[in-house]
Every structure is written in C-alpha cells, then in structure tokens.
C-alpha cells in the first residue's frame, strides 16, 4: 500500500537525506494544451472528446464494404473476425450472441474504438467524418438508427443502446 507518506519515506531513504514527506523528484514537464490535445483519444459516454465532423449511414455503408467487410462480413454478420450485428434478445438464453446491437451499453464506444484500432491493419487511417459514418452504419445495421441518420458530436451521445440498463457495476468508487 502506497500513501504519500510512505512514498515520502522511500524518497528520504533513496536520496539518503532528510526530505520533507511531500517532496518528490518533480521531473515531469508541464504539458501544453496542444500537447494534451495531440495525445487525447478518449471519448466519454457523455460525448466528451468527440471531435467535430459528421457522417451518414450511406457513406458508412460504402466505407464498410471497402474496409471492413472482409473481416467482419456482410452487414456485420461476422467473417474472419467478430460479428458486429444481431443477437438481439439472446443474452439470457443458452446461446447468447454479444454484438454492438445486442450488448454494447454506449454508442460513443464505437467512435472511440474505431478511431483507436480499426481497420485492423491500418489503424489511424480514417478521418473523423469517416469514423462518424462507420459508426452510423454499424448502428443502422443493428436497427438502432434509421437509414437517414447522420452522426456527429451532438447526436452520437444521445443514441440509447438497447442493452444500456442491463449493466451492474461490480466496483463502485
């Protein structure tokens, strides 16, 4: 267990001097707002962190066919890799199918994850508009938004995922 106090003690030992408990090496450099913005990739469920931009289901469908279809199958039915659609109402059965539509609690996670990690071989290659489009399309094939939907920083956090209220926190801070 580390408290500031024990750490202070450690520092005193490490430097062989009598230092005040609160003393610390202080070797971090102050990060500027621009530096923080350059690093920050987190999108929170309330939409914090979503960038400007927008994208439609139709644009997403085209991108999905080009960049995602090979691994995730037609309309997200799954191919080499994870199934991304369907499975609604299956969670309490003997054959649960966990997908974005049947399982994921927050739509913001889609933007966050695609921006981080997809497409698998070329993460970081999509523009924000493209990520919004793919998010719109994946919500559409899961029956969560209609084919006219356009996603942006205002709309996406308002999308209510069907399974949202079925999560219990085993840890509460």
């Amino acid at each position: 267990m580390f408290t500031s106090k024990t750490v202070g003690g450690l520092l005193a030992i490490a430097f062989g001097t009598l230092v005040h408990a609160a003393e610390s090496p202080n070797l971090g450099t102050l990060a500027s707002g621009a530096e923080v913005a350059a690093y920050d990739l987190t999108v929170m469920p309330d939409g914090t962190g979503l960038p400007v931009g927008s994208g439609s289901v139709a644009q997403g469908m085209r991108l999905y066919t080009e960049q995602c279809f090979a691994c995730h199958g037609a309309e997200g039915e799954g191919a080499l890799n994870d199934r991304l659609a369907g499975g609604h109402g299956s969670l309490a059965t003997r054959a649960p199918v966990k997908t974005i539509g049947s399982f994921w609690p927050y739509a913001t996670t889609l933007f966050d994850y695609i921006r981080r990690a997809m497409p698998y071989a070329e993460p970081g290659s999509l523009s924000n508009d493209e990520i919004y489009s793919l998010t719109a399309y994946l919500l559409y094939i899961n029956g969560i938004v209609d084919d006219e939907a356009v996603m942006d920083a205002r709309v996406l956090p308002e999308v209510v995922m069907p399974n949202r209220d079925n999560f219990v926190w085993a840890y509460k801070p």
Binding site: K98, W104, Y113
Partner: peptide, 11 residues
C-alpha cells in the same frame, strides 16, 4: 470523474 466505457471493459 467517470469511466470511459472502452470496448475492452464493456464488449
């Protein structure tokens, strides 16, 4: 103040 609900803690 809140968790981010990333893919690797939800899905």
């Amino acid at each position: 103040a809140q968790p981010a609900m990333t893919k690797d803690e939800t899905s």
